[in-house]
Amino acid sequence: MAKTLVIGANGTVGTELVKLLIAQGHDVRKATSKAVKDPARDVHLNLVSGEGLAQAFAGVSKVFLLCPPGYTNHDELLKPAIDAAKAQGVQKLVLMTAMGANADESAPLRKAEVHLQNSGLAYNIIRPNWFMQNFNTFWIQGILEHGKIFLPLGASKGSFIDARDIAAVAAQLLSKDDFNNRDFDLTGSVALDHDEVAKILSAATGRTITYEDIPPDVLLGGLLQAGLPKPYAEFLLLILSYFKAGYSERTTDAVQTILGRAPGTLEQYARDYRSAWVTAS
């Protein structure tokens, strides 16, 4: 089976993707920007500095690529990786960006997508909507400490997607060529507002969890206090403003098309991740 390089292998999607690829027989190489602990399986790669690009892609036939979190110059980090993949003879590359990335041709993520599309590599681009897993990672502090989801989103809705479905889609695209050279917006099957999300989390945990709409500058202050770089924190506020404007409500049938099943529900996600929110109760 193909030797497959997973960039972001320790992230929310990458961790699940590695498990699926190994189960499907892939010889998986995990890229890490930290010290390599298992030379037989891991390879050093720093997309920010460019260190390790040629070595990481050597002998690889399939690649899963995404931009590391915390940066806004996505094209500057992703284009050299795409070029290295081509130079090393990679057969196919699956790039994960974000839903809405193709709405503005001048956006850094869109520039990276176009670079891949023009590279001559066989490819897929997957653009997931907001992750369900944000509620047990990025937005968890307010839930644990106050029983509240604090976000500046009003009553807007999002078709949240389970990161495990994103990983399953990526695994399928890396294993088969049925959908080569196509891009897909990945969503859940239903759009929910944050009051509805809070009710679902409450039902799963037995806690009273509510949603509180907050001013954007309050969230910005919290993100900066948490140590996020200011440009990235401001970027998060920008894309959250698109959510509030209604751009995250759309649903697609991409998961069904690729996997032959419906996306996972927020109810199932809440049951599976219940322990994340009950540790403080």
Score class of each variant (00 low, 15 high):
L237C: 02
A163F: 07
T208G: 08
P229F: 01
S248V: 01
N180G: 07
G221D: 15
A23P: 03
S189Y: 03
R261N: 13
M99P: 09
A9D: 07
K34T: 15
L116V: 09
D75F: 07
Y273I: 01
L47N: 00
S61D: 11
D38N: 15
L144H: 00
T210D: 06
V28M: 14
I166S: 12
H194A: 08
A81V: 11
V18D: 01
L237T: 02
L192I: 08
Q24F: 04
I140V: 14
A276D: 05
V43E: 01
G142N: 00
S156H: 10
T257R: 10
A167G: 05
A107N: 11
W277L: 02
L45M: 03
V197M: 00
D75I: 09
A276G: 06
G142V: 00
A2V: 12
K30V: 07
N136W: 05
Q141S: 12
N102S: 15
A98L: 04
K157M: 11
G59H: 00
A40M: 05
G158W: 03
N181M: 07
R271G: 08
Q141T: 12
Y269K: 02
K244Y: 11
V28T: 12
L224I: 10
K30H: 09
P229T: 13
Q88V: 01
F184K: 13
T265Y: 03
G264L: 12
L192V: 11
A107W: 13
N181R: 03
G59R: 01
K230V: 10
D183Q: 14
T205E: 04
A85W: 11
A31G: 04
Q225D: 13
P108W: 05
A198F: 01
A170F: 11
T257F: 09
G100S: 10
T72I: 15
V18L: 04
